[in-house]
Nucleic acid binder design. Structure first.
Lengths: 122, 122
DNA sequence: GCCAAAGTACGATAACCATCGTAGTACGAG
DNA sequence: CTCGTACTACGATGGTTATCGTACTTTGGC
């Protein structure tokens, strides 16, 4: 296969909603979950190259898959395959364009909460 | 009770969470509903003196009560009785203190959406 | 080709939530 | 005191969601 693709990118395709079609309720609903909020926080803290399995979430592997899909379908993250791994990145710019200031304020609030209660797993 | 009560305030008490105890997931979850989002939007647009019944929501009265309670228990609105009416006000300052920038960004996004799709009931 | 690793798909289950109708409570007007 | 208005409480119901385990697929290394 000599197509002009990234070195190890698989042919598998993942659905991503267009920026203009992102829905506010969907985004808020996706962020209104402790597990997903911690995923978003980890991605924002520069762990964009982490595979799903590396997040060490307090749920099973299939539940983890489910949460990543909810985030992807809400338009909050973009996912791509690298070998057997599936890596994720925040759609920071898209979100800023569509819902200015929303993601930063959520991230700041969540970071503050983590400083207050560092032991809180949720 | 020495809380400088308004003239016609009833003895009925409503529970309101303290500002310091507001939870981000709860707030996001409360906002992740079209009906509640439209309530919040109406309140932000200066209709703070409206009674619940005046919002003309596309749901029954008991469902409306439910949504107002969710907003109140999440800490997004404050409610007080005036005669038989129960009026609501956004806790703008409390929210700004606890989650800076969150409410304005949500309101802006929702207003933009309404400009794009003025006929969308949801 | 074969195996392990990472993730997906699917079905089941339990919890949660939005919705409603009905019955009831609180309040003000008369 | 009675009545109407505004809201609440309660129970039912149907839909969505979070969770899991098991079986399957895709990929890369040997």
């Amino acid at each position: 296969m000599s197509e002009s693709a990234s070195p190890t990118v698989s042919g598998r395709r993942l659905e991503h909603p267009e920026t203009a079609r992102l829905r506010l309720e969907t985004v808020l609903g996706a962020l209104a979950d402790p597990v997903r909020l911690s995923i978003v926080c980890a991605l924002a803290d520069g762990h964009e190259d982490m595979a799903c399995v590396a997040f060490d979430l307090p749920v099973s592997k299939s539940t983890s898959t489910h949460h990543f899909r909810v985030l992807r379908e809400a338009g909050i993250i973009r996912q791509y395959y690298v070998g057997t791994a599936r890596k994720s990145a925040l759609r920071t710019d898209d979100l800023q364009e569509r819902f200015p200031g929303l993601l930063p304020s959520v991230l700041n609030a969540e970071r503050d909460r983590r400083e207050e209660h560092p032991d809180d797993p949720a």
